[in-house]
Design a protein around this nucleic acid. Sequence first.
DNA 1: CGGAGAATTGACAAGCATCAATCGAGGTGG
DNA 2: CCACCTCGATTGATGCTTGTCAATTCTCCG
Lengths: 232, 232
Amino acid sequence: MLQTVPGTLANDHDTMPWTKDAYVSTARAFDLLAGHGTRLTVKRGQEIFAEGDTAESGYRLVDGSIRLVKLMVDGRRQVCEFLNADDLLGFETDDEYYFSAEAVSDCALVRYSRRAVETLLTEDKAFARHVRKVTARGLQDAYQRMVLLCHKSAQERIAWFLLTMADRAGIETGYIHLPMTRTDIANYLGMAIETVSRVLGQFKQNGAIIQKSLNRIQVVDRDALELVRGEV
Amino acid sequence: MLQTVPGTLANDHDTMPWTKDAYVSTARAFDLLAGHGTRLTVKRGQEIFAEGDTAESGYRLVDGSIRLVKLMVDGRRQVCEFLNADDLLGFETDDEYYFSAEAVSDCALVRYSRRAVETLLTEDKAFARHVRKVTARGLQDAYQRMVLLCHKSAQERIAWFLLTMADRAGIETGYIHLPMTRTDIANYLGMAIETVSRVLGQFKQNGAIIQKSLNRIQVVDRDALELVRGEV
DNA sequence: CGGAGAATTGACAAGCATCAATCGAGGTGG
DNA sequence: CCACCTCGATTGATGCTTGTCAATTCTCCG
């Protein structure tokens, strides 16, 4: 099964056997929130909230990319997930954030107060279902990545990463845009940045990919990457 | 922060600042399900459901331990989580299970039909909140373990594991009961069973632990283990 | 054009996986 | 009740993947 965007707001119809009648479009669900939402923008590298902060808001990412990170006292960091446009953030927790959220690129978000979120969660069944679904998807992705971190080689991880990023972006351009740094990728996949560099170098030499610029990569030989990645 | 049992049904009061008024005891929440639940028992090693199965039921673990596993085609397995008495299982997904559930020891469960679960999720706010909370806790634990898998040494992992198991069990006896095999532990922590054995051997020699039997371990020097574990 | 941060490349070491053999425990049948 | 048998755990030797340290190069902006 292909990895899909966690918390995406589209294409839920085909996976909601029990709930077709109760389904409403995300657009309508968020119309209900609209009056309570405030737009904000954050610049690249800026923090939206920190681990341990009281969860006073939920966010919807409108544009840009965000990384969810857990920070260690010695400065090492674990990137738990990358979020893209239309992903939700902070809707599932009602006490403290258990990760920090940082802008990978300049971002536009809509911020909803916890009170508005709580109200909608209890009063709008479709919205509540959507949040459940999104959270479950997050857990699913986390478990999937545990397999990756425990059982896959450096090459398998990078191949998986490139293919996943391509799928998430839709790859209509032919290029994968990687807004994050090599350090982010390394911390996401549980390896050193040097290893990321080396494996990307191998793929370039294999002719599997072409690096147009630092964060623009073209997948020339998708089959080769899928072969390296192995089963998902 | 200490690791706690994911999805435990007790002690939620102190972490629900927004919802004290809406809170009802789990006992009452599950009274609502009672009429729809059916008891069942599974023997050690038996499968409750498999990854990819249609999620037709939710379960509450009454007694025993369960492992959530993802299986690879070559037979390797990733243990995503261990569940204990009072934990919930399969309540957050409404299409397909994204992991298999296997009995680590003989288990007693209560099984609820998907229809009953769906109904209660939409009609009982407190129950819906509880499921949200439990799922979020699962995601939190998953992220926490990513840090472990990516940044911690074998010794740190085993120390973390022992302390976490002790905390989850309440350790009133002075002994940690480990119902799972070394293979399970290895697949949970992302290391080889030989390494698990070796590290446990070191801890025994250090005097940090005493192994009463294969799955009964006494923590003699908790401070030493916490020192090895480092920050959580 | 120049500077600073990021990425690449290389050399080396270490932690851990793998392979292999032995040991131990728990369960069964005589 | 004991011996045996089988599976899991332990212990040892070895090799490899990958992390770490270091130096250089590249890229992006001002």
